[in-house]
Every structure is written in structure tokens, then in C-alpha cells.
């Protein structure tokens, strides 16, 4: 099979690139488009560090053949801070000391974005479930759960204002 030109809408911008057959969305983002926020933690779909949103749904980009999502909308962590301003989730992760080594952070934030887009007022159990596919080896998870709940609170506050 020859390589083909794949077109994606990435963080709101249409991007085209040449993809070899079977190349993953993760490899395409990182190596063809230079978007390195999503990380390769396991390449087995089991750690969540490569999570991006495809049409708003969280997907582990390491398991997605890029040609299967051609034409669709992909959101990565680079697209979250609009105009360089951190959003509520990012700010809450900073304020709640929810990062240590930072390697799982991109995946955690993207999962949180998808959750809060879907449900602006999640319970703690909802947050726990949302991040249950994401591995963090440093924090013990508690600060991340708190940060996401804090982000939800702040976002609701911003909306009501």
C-alpha cells in the first residue's frame, strides 16, 4: 500500500500530511505535525499519556491508525490554551500541585476536558472513572482528582458570571 495524503482538522486548523499505511495518529501528530504534547507512554493503549480528543471524544492516539480518522477534528493539549492563556483545567492543575514529572499531564488534561465538556458538574466518582485509563506514577492520583473537580467548579463559576 502506498503512502497517502491525510487531512485532519487539528486544533481548529486544517492540516495535510503524508502518512505511511498504518501509521498512528500519535506518530502523525508528533512527527508529521510537530505537536509533541501527547506522549508515547506505552504504545499499547494502556497508559493514556497520548490521549487526544477526536470529534470531542478521548482516544488513545497510539492505537488509532491515522487514515481511519481522516477528515475529522482532533484536539490536542496545544489547542487548549487559547492565545497563550491557560484554561480552567490547566490553571487548576498548576494551582492544585497536580503535576510532578509532567509526563502523564497532557493525557490527564485532555480526559478532563472531554469530561467537563460533557458534564460541567461531575461527581468525584465521575472524575475517577474518567481518568481511570490514565497512569500516573508520581502523584497517587488524589491531587489530579481534586484539580479536575476544582476546574469544574471554576468553569461553572465562569459560565454563571
Amino acid at each position: 500500500m502506498p503512502s497517502q495524503i491525510v487531512s485532519l482538522v487539528v486544533n481548529g486548523e486544517r492540516r495535510e500530511f503524508i502518512a505511511a499505511p498504518g501509521v498512528t495518529l500519535l506518530a502523525s501528530l508528533r512527527e508529521s505535525l510537530g505537536l509533541t504534547a501527547a506522549k508515547r507512554g506505552c504504545a499499547q493503549g494502556a497508559c493514556g499519556t497520548c490521549t487526544v480528543l477526536v470529534d470531542g471524544r478521548p482516544e488513545v492516539a497510539c492505537l488509532v491508525a491515522v487514515e481511519t480518522v481522516a477528515g475529522r477534528s482532533v484536539r490536542t493539549l496545544e489547542g487548549v490554551a487559547a492565545g497563550g492563556e491557560l484554561d480552567e483545567v490547566q490553571n487548576a492543575f498548576v494551582d492544585c500541585f497536580a503535576t510532578q514529572c509532567g509526563f502523564c499531564t497532557a493525557g490527564m488534561i485532555m480526559v478532563a476536558e472531554a469530561l467537563l465538556d460533557r458534564d460541567p458538574d461531575p461527581s468525584e466518582a465521575d472524575v475517577v472513572e474518567a481518568i481511570s485509563g490514565n497512569v500516573c506514577r508520581c502523584t497517587g492520583y488524589r491531587p489530579i482528582v481534586i484539580a479536575i473537580l476544582e476546574a469544574a467548579r471554576r468553569r461553572r463559576g465562569a459560565v454563571s458570571r
Binding site: 509533541t36 504534547a37 501527547a38 490536542t76 493539549l77 496545544e78 487548549v80 490554551a81 491557560l86 483545567v89 490547566q90 490553571n91 492543575f93 498548576v94 500541585f97 503535576t99 509532567g102 499531564t105 497532557a106 488534561i109
Partner: peptide
């Protein structure tokens, strides 16, 4: 390092 981590930079 927190800002870099949350922005993917």
C-alpha cells in the same frame, strides 16, 4: 515546571 507541563511545552 508546572506551566510547561500543563501546556505540553
Amino acid at each position: 515546571d508546572a506551566r510547561g507541563h500543563v501546556t505540553g511545552r
